[in-house]
Write a protein that binds this DNA or RNA. Structure first.
Lengths: 198, 198
DNA sequence: TCCCCGGCGTGACAAATGTCAGGACTACCA
DNA sequence: TGGTAGTCCTGACATTTGTCACGCCGGGGA
């Protein structure tokens, strides 16, 4: 019997996934959680074989929760937002499975069985993208100002934080925007985040 | 037996919801669709009692699909994005049920039975918000320029589209931003959209 | 050695953006 | 009738933002 802890902030989805998994004779959902912090606690209490975590959760997201969960429990991340960079972050956090929500529901149980048997599972589509897709085209400085941009500050705020002239900051932002083919630094910062570069 | 067509663009979620509903002895999922257009077609073919549609779908969103579905099939909208304004739009499109994804999974079947029996279902939390929450604070002109802003055009584009001076457009945007307590027109447009005002 | 290339850094410039004060018009109330 | 409130509309102004041309420096080739 594979014991599973399931975490997703949307009750309806979480309950539906639980129903799906409970259909399998060899899988049992022993606890559910509605955010990352509760998931970590639940894993500590129940010591399940596998923790299935939604990536997008309040308080602590799935990857952060995965980093806090010890090696005794394999973590499988489920996400609607599957980008190569996110996959890299997830793998770096020790995640054993990475399942986009575009995966057919019928396959989830098989994935959990494979992971329980010691295998890793990574969606082949995303893995291929992660390998073929050219690496991040941005320089270290450009990434740095984009990181600060995502925090919401104005150009002047960023300039003081990075100890640069505001003109320089604008230049990096402009360069990044050109490379990413967008027209505002907010778009650039969002895109870089979605790609997992910052 | 309640015959249901289920539409959601995420295979995993759609499959899980199907599993959840199939657990009920009196509910049967007769077809599934992964976008709004396909959902409309599936409803035409299968003539189900109820169509359960995710709001966020490519091509045709759930509300647009609901508007195209005739009175023979009751439409229940499921959404992660439950705001009073969205609820209003949904009801205006003739939707019979409005279920946020925060609803406990165990309640979904009961809701479908109620709807099938002729009742309407609206999440009480959102309904209360829709009644208590002050109405949209923006004027017609402000909403109009925000609509155009969301399309992505610059201030000048909007001005020509609305036949106004660019200064006037900026003024409306500024006024809207003040009322909504944000610092950029894009934020204002996004917020207004999320509230269902545009 | 010289030269070129790429990243780093800066300031000047132009365009876009947001804010302000105020005029014109209508609706409503005293 | 006058006054008041609200919306519509405009132009002037300051700030923010994005683009450009340029200089500096270190690492390879020719």
């Amino acid at each position: 019997m594979i014991r599973v802890v399931l975490a997703d902030d949307e009750d309806l989805i979480r309950g539906a996934l639980a129903a799906l998994l409970e259909l399998e004779p060899d899988i049992s959902v022993v606890a559910q959680a509605s955010d990352g912090a509760a998931a970590v606690v639940a894993v500590g209490v129940h010591q399940p074989d596998i923790a299935v975590l939604d990536l997008e959760m309040p308080k602590v997201d799935g990857i952060a929760a995965a980093a806090e969960i010890g090696a005794g429990t394999a973590v499988v991340i489920v996400t609607r937002h599957a980008r190569p960079g996110v996959l890299r972050r997830a793998l770096a956090a020790g995640v054993r499975g990475f399942v986009p929500k575009t995966t057919p529901a019928a396959r989830l149980a098989a994935i959990l069985r494979d992971v329980h048997a010691g295998a890793r599972y990574v969606d082949s589509e995303i893995a291929a993208s992660a390998l073929t897709e050219d690496a991040c085209p941005l320089t270290a400085r450009e990434l740095e100002v984009l990181r600060h941009t995502r925090a919401g500050g104005s150009v002047l705020d960023i300039a003081t934080a990075v100890h640069l002239a505001h003109g320089t900051v604008r230049n990096y932002l402009s360069s990044a925007m050109t490379k990413l083919d967008v027209t505002s630094r907010h778009d650039a910062a969002r895109l870089a985040w979605e790609e997992g570069w910052i």
